[in-house]
Amino acid sequence: MTTDPYEALGLTKSATQDEIKKAYRKLVRTSHPDLHPDDAGAEARFKAIAAAHDLLKDPETRARFDAGEIDASGAERPQRQYYRDFAEDAGNPYQQRRGFEGRGDPADIFAEILRQRTQQGRDDFGGGGFAAPGPDFRYALEVPFLDAARGGEMRITLPDGASLAVRIPQGAHDGQTLRLRGKGGPGFGGGPSGDALISLSVRPHPVFRRDGNDILVTLPITIDEAVLGAKVTAPTITGPVNLTIPAGATSGRVLRLRGRGVARSGGKTAGDQLVELKIVAPPVIDDALRDFLTEWRKTHADDPRADLLNEALS
């Protein structure tokens, strides 16, 4: 979008630097996306006026623009994510409420919303008998892939030097937050301690990948195993298991090991492990193999790309 920067700010070329600043501030109030979360057009307007202001706020670049040395687009800003894009996410850490207590009667839910609102006000201005829960502390913890998939325990060292054991639940996923009750800051005036909130990021694994509760593995097999079929050993997150490769298997075929994925808490069925086969050529092609395939090729014309080439043209 390349509009005249003066026009974007509602000004003319004769505007003073002060007028530019004033016009920009006025437009920021009406167009900043974070001040108008419901206004879908705000982002585009804000971008336009921010770009215009960037160009004109500096008398030097303004002079170059006026002289026609640079155009109105100037330098394109990188894609920006605004705060409002996150504000309504379920896990937004800046929403201090802990969700509706109890449930059922909608009237109770509204009462709860109002109660929490007034509670917040009272906390701020409470005079005598003041008691408040302690602050929550937020930590980042990188978890090894297998500990997240199978569950485990990790010891962490808090900034104050204290050591804390954290139980990683089975099937913990990337971005999950664990709440350790009472491990935050001390309360005020007899209030309860805050919580420790631990945000998990799962470290990638060289062999396993995860899709929800399913584990994905790419398994290399030899040409003879693919043609004749074979019993091979495949890794799973709980150790190696036997896997039967059917005769005539091909690269990209996916075999399912039922129940070998991430177990779910509460006795529900576990996820599966999906094994994708990948045929690999032998490290050394000897004469025997070369001679056999040379002969074999003469009598077995097959073009697996025929359909592909036809479809590519359609």
Partner: peptide, 25 residues
Amino acid sequence: LPLRRVDGGAPGHLFRQVDFARVQL
């Protein structure tokens, strides 16, 4: 409210995307 590292990496703050957007705001 950024996170604090507790997994043995260099100590300091870590900012999630939501924290980063908030700082920009």
